[in-house]
Computed example of a mutant assay.
Amino acid sequence: MDISKIKAVVFDCDGVMFDTAVANRKYYDEVLQTFGKPALNEEQFVNVHMMTIKGAIEYLFPEMDDLSSVYDRLKNIGYHKFIKYMIMEKDLKELLLKLEDNGYIRGIGTNRTNTMEKVLEDFHLEDYFEVVVTAAKVKNPKPDPEQLLLIMGKFDLQPDEILFIGDSDYDRQAAASAKVRFVAFKNSELKADFNVDSMDEIAEVLQINE
């Protein structure tokens, strides 16, 4: 594939920009505990990690027709107190600066809804991205390609001009449907154009690792 065509690099948030395993687990465990349910098992954890909050709540509370009491509880719990448990991926800022220096559009495509802005603020990343598309900004979150298509439309890009970096099957499906280049991050089981384990390796893929 011709890497020289790439004009935009788009990152998933959870599992790519940040290790959010502890934060997300603590958050959903608190929600479940409130309703007398056991903590997340491994299968549930893997699934909610990919989903929007809405998708995760519907998945975790299949027995409830009316989820309004759960959503009310979510408002009381809030996610902000769990942001401190998120760990920014090593060399993320360095890569983002290299991308800027080399003229790339830097984007985020995430199934987070209303917490991304606060995460960027807390980690001082507000000025590192030209476009941020959350699940709240589209009708259909990942695995639908709408987030990637929106970015393509905004910057008048062709599919082969975007490199999307994700860690889940939702990300892979979104990339495949949008026909964009896909980098699997720290997930060797995902079929991808490239499989990497670090931000440095992404720079190597783009040949900007001087």
Rank of each mutant, 00 (worst) to 15 (best):
D14Q: 08
K84N: 09
E201R: 00
K186E: 12
K154Q: 12
R112C: 06
S177F: 09
V205D: 01
F182C: 10
V10F: 09
P62T: 02
V180N: 05
F45C: 02
Y71A: 01
I105Q: 02
H124G: 04
E58D: 10
R25K: 15
L148W: 01
L92I: 09
F182G: 11
I151W: 08
L99Q: 01
T34F: 05
D65H: 11
T110K: 05
N114F: 14
H124T: 08
E58C: 04
E201F: 14
D14T: 05
D171M: 13
G109D: 11
A135K: 04
I208D: 00
Y27W: 08
R181H: 15
S177H: 07
K84H: 14
D72R: 11
D200L: 12
F35L: 07
T134W: 00
D66C: 03
T115W: 07
I208W: 11
E130G: 14
D197M: 11
V196I: 10
G107F: 09
D193M: 06
L74K: 06
S177R: 13
V16T: 08
S4Q: 14
L96Y: 00
I108N: 03
L157H: 11
E63Y: 01
L163P: 06
Q158S: 14
G107A: 12
I57T: 12
N102E: 02
V131S: 05
N47S: 13
I202Y: 09
I202E: 00
A8I: 11
K98T: 02
H124N: 15
D169C: 00
D29T: 09
Y104E: 00
N209G: 01
V16Q: 10
A135C: 07
M116P: 03
M116K: 01
F164Y: 15
R172C: 05
F45N: 08
K81D: 08
A192G: 08
M1G: 13
K26C: 09
E201M: 06
S4P: 02
E58G: 11
I202M: 05
T115R: 05
I53L: 15
F82Y: 14
E146A: 01
G36K: 03
N24M: 08
P141G: 04
V9I: 11
V183A: 14
I3D: 03
G103W: 09
V48K: 05
K142N: 04
E63V: 04
P145K: 02
L96P: 03
D101R: 13
L74E: 05
K137P: 00
V46S: 10
R106M: 04
D91Y: 13
I57C: 07
I77L: 04
D91K: 11
G36S: 07
E89P: 00
G107L: 01
V16M: 14
T115P: 00
Q33C: 06
I6W: 10
P145E: 03
S68Y: 00
R112N: 14
D65Y: 03
D193F: 07
T20R: 03
D156G: 08
D169M: 13
I108W: 02
